[in-house]
């Protein structure tokens, strides 16, 4: 189930966009898999449908999803993700690298890190999320928990 953090100051559509993006990038939502409809998600989360619509629009603009009229929205091919999103990330990366170097981080260690990731080795967990609140009692849950389940299986 998609869960939102009500204490996060960012707009809801941004949070939703991020969560769906991460699910698609990690493969939890596979290529070609159908996303819940705007109406379904709005009802499940008790959020205005326009907000959901906005998140879906942004995801489509950046190439993460595509819609088929009358059928719904589906996860797109990862290689199709827009240059716009990549530029956004590169800018953020530059800011982070700059800060790290200013704090005395060794450039060599950053290069080693990059090589490690490129070769497919996971480098430990990401930044832990702030406490999240889930929509309780919602009918058919959209299984966003599959990513967590995959993680559990790997650690066995």
């Amino acid at each position: 189930m998609i869960s939102l953090n009500y204490r996060d100051p960012r707009p809801i559509y941004e949070q939703l966009e991020e969560k769906l993006r991460r699910l698609i990038l990690s493969g939890a939502i596979g290529e070609g898999e159908k996303l819940p409809s705007v109406r379904e998600l709005a009802s499940q989360l008790a959020i205005n449908p326009n907000t959901i619509q906005r998140a879906y629009r942004e995801l489509e603009q950046n190439g993460f999803i595509y819609s088929v009229p009358g059928k719904g929205s589906f996860a797109g091919k990862l290689s199709g993700v827009d240059e716009g999103r990549r530029k956004e990330l590169r800018d953020k990366l530059l800011a982070i690298w700059t800060e790290l170097l200013q704090l005395g981080e060794n450039p060599e260690s950053l290069i080693a890190l990059l090589k490690q990731i490129a070769m497919g080795d996971s480098v430990g967990g990401g930044v832990p999320d702030a406490p999240e609140v889930t929509a309780a009692g919602a009918p058919k849950a959209f299984e966003a928990g599959t990513a967590a389940k995959k993680e559990e299986k790997r650690n066995d």
Binding site: R39, A42, S43, A46, I47, A135
Partner: peptide, 17 residues
Amino acid sequence: PVMRRQVWGLMIQDVAQ
């Protein structure tokens, strides 16, 4: 809190449908 969500959820469902 549970009832609040139920009420909002019902309202949004009506709006969405």
